[in-house]
Design a protein around this nucleic acid. Structure first.
Lengths: 232, 232
DNA sequence: ATGACCCTTCGGCGTTCACCGAACCATTGG
DNA sequence: CCAATGGTTCGGTGAACGCCGAAGGGTCAT
């Protein structure tokens, strides 16, 4: 009974078009101002404020005041994961015709994007597949991965900050996150975040100014081939 | 953006308390009747029908008519995954299978009964599972089974009158029939009837005087273990 | 201070949608 | 045949909620 109410309440929060637009923008993992989110949702500031308050109240968002602005971000990776799962469902809703139409509309987003703080899309899947195929990563249960001994060596060689990822105790270490465009799980959690950080820090990838789209640089493409044995 | 609208639409479907209650019940992975779901949601049959129609339309549920009943189940594991992700946000977990009042009203009926002319209940499912797990039977489409070459040999060895079953041209040969109590398909059609006949002819099972309840004899229990590799 | 900017709270309006009563098919059993 | 059961469709009603205008409280500049 309680669990049912909780399900409907959180789903109803995501079920409003304005709130969904806000959440969609926040899927880039960055913090956005209230007015920025109002603009993205196509509503006035008052309306947006109400939405943001409710979502913060429900622990979907985390708020932080800074000067005159108020910044909102997704409260946790779990929230991003749930949103991604729902998007995966939405992708299967209308099968072939409208799928290919909506599919081609944003090929860059499909190719590489941030999902909260880790990589998603073809690149995210390529990284994950490389790790599993080389035995660095193994499925553990239905929601997690296990980093093997060879995986630890691999991280050290490539420069992934494993120690930093292990420091956070409040967070899942290696999580399976269902990719909405590829429809297969990619690596998320603290490890997924650390891997993404490596990509950004080494200049292998860079976030575009607007949206969740990520551009894979030439050196990133070479790194994928050299270190991961993958091509995209 | 198309993906935003799709997100809000699917989330809004889950956001209604009545629909959430239905989905929560369906998380047990089984198929449930429309009235069962109406009861679980605490709404009338008309209201439930509307909800179920909308969720089926959106490919969240799959419907299958059987006799007077209409069985609904989650359309895919992805749907279950998304629901579970949403439940995780509220810190609660999917509830295990809940036993209704009708469930324990007649344990014998649940154990073994006739469904028209073939076996149903735990025994019917055990027989069907044995055949599929040994590669004798394969799903064909969404309503039929295919009897493999090894399945033909198995029938000959156990004494199922395959030739007689093949004679009837007016009837489906190997049909999937959704089990009322187990909520999974068991074998029906001419082949299911022939298998049941074998059980009755060899004294493995006998129909009780009244009702559809069937009693599995001791020799039937041994035959299940010996010939089918199953235990109930 | 004064204005400009950002955000929130309040109140009233309008649309949406979940709900049920009633009536209408379909299947089954006697 | 008819009665019983399960399910759906239709129409009207009521409440919930998203929306904006107006007003108020912070924060930063000049």
């Amino acid at each position: 009974m309680t669990t049912v109410n909780a399900l409907s309440e959180v789903a109803a929060l995501m079920g409003d078009p304005a709130r969904a637009a806000m959440l969609s923008l926040l899927m880039d993992g960055r913090a956005h101002t209230a007015s920025d989110l109002a603009l993205a949702a196509g509503v006035t500031a008052q309306t947006a404020s109400g939405h943001l308050g409710r979502m913060t109240e429900a622990n979907l968002l985390a708020a932080r005041a800074q000067g005159r602005n108020r910044f909102y971000r997704l409260a946790s990776g779990d929230v991003a994961h749930a949103i991604e799962s729902l998007m995966a469902l939405a992708g299967t809703r209308a099968q072939p015709a409208s799928r290919s139409a909506a599919w081609r509309r944003d090929p860059d987003l499909r190719f590489c994007r941030t999902c909260y703080d880790h990589l998603a899309g073809q690149v995210g899947i390529a990284v994950t597949d490389s790790l599993t195929q080389h035995g660095h990563l193994e499925p553990k249960g239905s929601h997690d991965w296990k980093l093997t001994a060879s995986g630890e060596l691999f991280c050290a060689r490539v420069g992934v900050d494993l120690a930093g990822a292990r420091q956070t105790t409040t967070r899942h270490f290696a999580r399976q996150c269902l990719d909405w465009s590829e429809r297969r799980p990619h690596i998320s959690g603290a490890l997924g975040s650390a891997i993404a950080d490596t990509f950004f820090k080494k200049g292998w990838a860079e976030k575009l100014r607007r949206g969740r789209t990520v551009r894979l640089t030439d050196s990133g493409r070479r790194a994928l081939a050299r270190d991961f044995g993958a091509s995209v």
